[in-house]
Structure formats: C-alpha cells, structure tokens
Design a protein around this nucleic acid. Structure first.
Length: 440
RNA sequence: GGCAGGUUGCCCGAGUGGCCAAAGGGAGCGGACUGUAAAUCCGCCGGCUCAGCCUUCGUAGGUUCGAACCCUACACCUGCCA
C-alpha cells in the first residue's frame, strides 16, 4: 500500500488534529516547541487486563507509531505492575487476576505491541528513534510500601484524588477499594521512572487517562523539581465514537481482538468491512497510514457510490494486512469473495472452497450425506448459532441457508447432491454469518 | 459495629403465593427494503428428545398441595448512624 509521507517532527500535531485524534494537551504551544526542538521520547501504557490487545488499543498503538514515523522515540509500556492493581473504571471494581496470569499477559501484549513499532534490528547500530519496550513491574514490583507512601504518596492530595470523575462516580455508586484508589500513584510514578531512565517527556493516552497523565506530569515536577530533562507534557486522543451510539470494537460475538486465536483474521476483516458509511472515513483517519489525499478520495467515493464500499474494503484490507500480514489478508479476501459471491457456490473449485471454509466457523462430520445429522444440528455444531433451539428459530425465521438455498423444513436433512465436491456444505445464517461443514 | 433498603433473564427494570420462562424498554438475531451500510416496519429473543418436558429470579435450607414472591441463615451492594 502507498504509505503516507512521514510527518516531520512538528507536523505531527497538525496531523493528529486532522485525523481527529487530538483531544487535550497539557500545554499545546510548549509541546509544539518541544517537538520542534528535536526528537523527543514519549510513552503510552497498556495494562494487561486480558490475554490480547483489541482493536480499541490500536488508536494508541498507531499514535505511537505516527510519532515514530515523525522522528520521535516511542516507548510502549506494559503494565506488569499496575496490572496487578487495576485502573479504576466507572463501572465498578475490577476483579484481580493472579500474578501468573498477569505475567503471561504481559508477555503476550509485549509481543503484540512490538509488531507495530520499529525496534533496533538485530545486529544493527541503535538509532535515536528506535522504539523501547518497558514493563513497569521492573520498578513497581520492588518498590517498598514505606517508600511509596513516603516519597510518592506525600505529593498526592486526597482532596484532589477525591475530586476525580471516576472516583466521584464510584463513590456515588458501587464504592471503590483502597487498592484501586491508589492506582494513580503507580501510573504517575511510571512517568517519573521513564523520565529519569529515558528522558521521556510526553505521555499519551485516551481521554479517560487525562487524570492519570496530569497526575504524572505533576509528580515529576514535585519529585524532580526543575524538570532537569526538560518540561513534561501530556496528550490525550479522542475516544472513538460510532454513528449508531454503540461501543466501538465489539461485535455480536464480543470484543474484536488482535490475537488470531481469539478473533479469526476473517472475522477481523469482516469487522472493518462492515463499518458504517458514516464512520468509515473517521476510521481510515484513525487506524491507517493513508495520506490525506487518499482518504479524501475514499471519502468522495463513499459519498458517490456507497454501495461499492470502496472505503470499507480499503480499511479492512489495510488493517488486516497490518495486524495479520499480507498472506493472511489475501486468504480472507479470497474467502470473503467466495462466500459472498453471486450465490452460485457450485462454481467454486474445491481448493477455494476448502480455503474459504477454513476461515469461518465450521464443523466436521462423518459422511455419507444420508447419515449426517439434521440441518438444525449442523447449524448448532458449526457454531453459527449458540444452541439447537436457536438453530430451530433461525429456520423458523427463514434465516437459515444451506449452500445459499433457504431451509424451510425444520427437520430438513442433507442429501448426497447437496455436498459440494462430495464433502462441503456452506451454511449461512442471515446475510452475513457464514459457516461450514466438512464431511470427513 | 448498629439500623434501613436492595440482589430478577445479555443490560435496565416490573412482579409480594397459583393465570410466571416471568410485563416493559434497550441490546442482539431473523425477514422485508438495500449495498455484507443506515433508517423504517414485522417477527424472534433460557434449554431440550419442542403441541410436552427440564432448569432459571444472590447462595443454602424451610413453610406450603403449590414460592421469584412467605420464613431462617449466609454472602455481596447501597444509604443512614457509630
């Protein structure tokens, strides 16, 4: 794909603005100046709350990447320490995960994050903009209680902490443990450590991180006095919204993960492909490296020929390639083409069909056709519907298809002639959920 | 620690002994329309060997012919008091 010409060190702010990413900064003029004065080091933290990053994380990950392309040095920080405590969220207290689990997740997130940034290649001389991967467990795991309370805690005012939005909402509702209440101390201290270790002078995050970020810049000033490595800044990116008001990054089957084991590349591709017309241009800005000219062209195409879905296709291809690689992307495009083709599945050759069905939920069964379970059972077994009752309903609703032919009989069974190439069945629920049966 | 209130299906929320698999709304799913979009209208929305049966209303017991609804204990949440 045609890559954007990298922004220069100072243009990065304008670029973020154009992409609709810039929400708040601690001192915009000061930040512009710092960026202009030479490469800076910036960081963004990712707490291990699950065994994979999800599409929502991409906003921050790619923002780090943009800074790197613009000539700055990014640090991806994984929260091996903070993950043990938990950033308070408005919804309610988090449940703690075991240290072993967290350690494992830290590993996974670190690997995932590394794929998006440029590190010093093996055997090469380090460059000033090479990315750094850190884990705050390195300092938080060993900090003593006395040290934390005396050296860090003394700089925090409980009055201010109580005034924070999340804290207020929690106190007015579910309440909050002391553990979570203390979280901000740890994240703030991370910034201090990175400032000292790497001269990191900028922390970025989503708008929900504003409080934690400013607490960090404040703490650096209080602990390190005159900011020996230069003034520190904070920058937040806008929370991504969807035109229909629902949460970004979820589908019927839940969160869209980057891990191919949790969200198949096919499902990942389909997620982006199904983006709403009203959202797709904003997504291209936030999630891709397409140039302004390219995106404006795609915007025009969306307005003129929405049915062609050119912008969605571009978005889906760019992101699938970025996250899963070119080969995988090619496969899922082929699979999508085959399964959403003109409806004539008999025209597909066995290899294409086999590859396509490998991308969707499917089940295996013992032949011959006459011995196969009823269609309703196959629908449930393939995972296209969650239960046999749901499968029955799907048929009753007229939303179940075998090889693109609507199933009308609730007791329908498969006949020999139905098997494509003697061993495949393409199951479909509704318009876009496709599954398969492979007869062994 | 004391007192009061609360805990219902994915979420919100009604339901105070049989007519409750449980009102209503939202989300979700399907159909029509279209473009694998949105909006709109219609239908569905615990499970199963599906005109029937089974399991659900914080947990465990109890009362009763019969309990989401009554009683007891426990857990958690919220508020007021200390």
């Amino acid at each position: 794909m045609e890559r954007a010409r990298d922004s220069t060190v100072t243009e990065i702010i304008d670029e973020l603005q154009w992409r609709g990413l810039l929400a708040q900064t601690t001192d915009l003029d000061g930040l512009r100046k710092a960026l202009a004065d030479g490469p800076i080091t910036l960081y963004c933290g990712f707490d291990p709350t699950a065994g994979s990053l999800h599409v929502g994380h991409l906003t921050q990950v790619l923002t780090l990447a943009r800074f790197q392309r613009a000539g700055h040095r990014p640090i991806a920080l994984v929260g091996g320490g903070t993950g043990l405590i938990g950033d308070p969220k408005p919804g309610g207290e988090r449940s703690l995960n075991s240290p072993e689990t967290i350690a494992h997740w830290v590993d996974v997130l670190g690997r995932q994050l590394s794929a998006f940034l440029r590190f010093t290649p093996e055997g090469s001389a380090p460059q000033p903009t090479d990315a750094v991967l850190e884990n705050n467990g390195a300092w938080l795991d060993s900090i003593g209680a006395i040290e934390l309370l005396r050296d860090v805690g003394k700089h925090f005012s409980v009055n201010q902490m109580l005034a924070r939005e999340t804290v207020k909402s929690r106190l007015g509702g579910e309440g909050m443990s002391y553990t979570e209440f203390s979280y901000v101390l740890l994240q703030s201290y991370d910034f201090v450590e990175l400032y000292r270790r790497h001269r990191c002078t900028l922390q970025i995050g989503g708008t929900d991180q504003w409080g934690n970020i400013t607490a960090g810049t404040d703490l650096i000033r209080r602990m390190d006095g005159n900011e020996p490595h230069g003034p520190v800044h904070g920058l937040t990116t806008n929370l991504l919204t969807k035109a229909d008001g629902t949460k970004f990054g979820k589908t019927e089957s839940g969160t869209v993960w980057l891990d191919p084991e949790l969200t198949s590349p096919y499902a990942f591709y389909q997620f982006w492909f199904n983006a709403d017309d009203r959202d797709v241009v904003r997504y291209l800005k936030v999630f891709g490296f397409r140039t302004r000219a390219e995106i404006e062209e795609l915007e025009r195409l969306t307005a003129e020929r929405p049915a062609a879905r050119t912008a969605q296709r571009t978005l889906a291809e760019d992101l699938t390639t970025l996250v899963h690689g070119e080969d995988e992307c090619r496969k899922v495009i082929e699979a999508s083409k085959a399964l959403f083709g003109q409806g004539d599945l008999t025209g597909l050759d066995a290899a294409t069909l086999d590859a396509a069905l490998a991308e969707v939920p499917r089940t295996e069964a013992d032949g011959p056709a006459a011995a196969l379970p009823p269609v309703v059972d196959l629908l449930a077994a393939s995972g296209l519907v969650p239960s046999k009752s749901a499968a029955r309903r799907a048929v009753q609703d007229g939303g179940a298809y075998v090889n693109n032919v609507k199933v009308t009989d609730i007791d329908a069974r498969v006949a020999d002639g139905d098997l494509l190439h003697g061993r495949y069945l393409v199951l479909r629920r509704g318009k876009r959920s496709v599954g398969g049966v492979v007869v062994t």
